[in-house]
């Protein structure tokens, strides 16, 4: 076959943002934006843990966070991360549907990575998007109460949170959404390491185990806090 090329080295596409035009390159971006979102989740959970310290700690934390203008930059970056993740995942999913125009009459699945988590990725992903929109309207753009902490006037977001979770149906919805998030992460996190080529024989099992702990641990933390709020 080398006779076709003549020269020693075939010339592949040089690096540029063209990498994003390849399937492998787009998968890097889905993986990276997914992992960055996981970083956000971890930060969000750490912040929420301040709920346990009482209204003043939580409110001052939220006040500090939102009173710097950097928050707009952070929000914009987060927005871009989510949109890139969502948009590319949808595009890849569409291409995958197109890659097999004629379906099998009979098809079994038995791959070791094939499970309820991996096969529902698009659906859990869409569910998380719906949750995200509602979550913002319920909290960030939810009912506003004011309070004073050490003489500083600030939003009593603690009250908004507790009020929300007092309603049993809100609690149930939140727990369902967090379970769907856990499902999405259960495949997504470890899959990201595979897509980025970080997985190898030596660390494969560790990555899988760590990913699962993260995938179930973080949503479990959010669920714990929501139940705690309900009981206040």
């Amino acid at each position: 076959m080398s006779s076709e090329t003549g020269d020693a080295a075939p010339s592949g596409p040089k690096f540029s943002f063209l990498i994003l035009q390849t399937s492998v390159g787009r998968k890097y971006l889905v993986a990276i934006t997914g992992l960055l979102s996981c970083g956000f989740l971890l930060g969000h959970l750490a912040g929420n843990l301040l709920l346990l310290m009482g209204p003043d700690s939580f409110n001052s934390y939220a006040h500090k966070l939102t009173s710097t203008s950097l928050i707009y930059v952070a929000e914009a970056i987060l927005g871009v991360i989510f949109l890139v993740h969502l948009g590319l995942a949808l595009k890849l999913n569409w291409e995958n549907k197109m890659a097999r125009p004629q379906k099998y009459v009979k098809k079994k699945t038995f791959g070791p990575g094939e499970n309820i988590f991996s096969s529902t990725m698009p659906y859990t992903g869409i569910a998380i998007l719906v949750f995200l929109v509602l979550h913002l309207t319920q909290f960030k753009f939810g009912s506003v109460y004011m309070t004073q902490v050490e003489g500083v006037e600030m939003r009593d977001v603690y009250r908004t949170v507790i009020e929300f979770f007092k309603n049993i149906w809100s609690l149930v919805w939140y727990c369902v959404a967090m379970s769907l998030l856990a499902m999405h992460l259960a495949h997504g996190v470890q899959s990201s390491f595979q897509s980025l080529g970080i997985r190898s024989k030596q660390i494969g099992q560790w990555l899988k185990c760590g990913s699962r702990i993260f995938a179930f641990g973080v949503p479990a933390g959010f669920i714990f806090l929501s139940i705690w709020c309900h009981l206040q």
């Binding site: 010339s11 995958n96 070791p112 470890q190």
Partner: peptide, 25 residues
């Protein structure tokens, strides 16, 4: 250059994208 050329050709041929289900393996 090999890996870049082969991936580019694979995409061009109309194969789908990997979702790490390991069905292939």
């Amino acid at each position: 250059s090999r890996v870049k050329s082969m991936v580019a050709k694979m995409d061009e041929m109309g194969f789908g994208n990997c979702t790490n289900h390991s069905e292939c393996m």
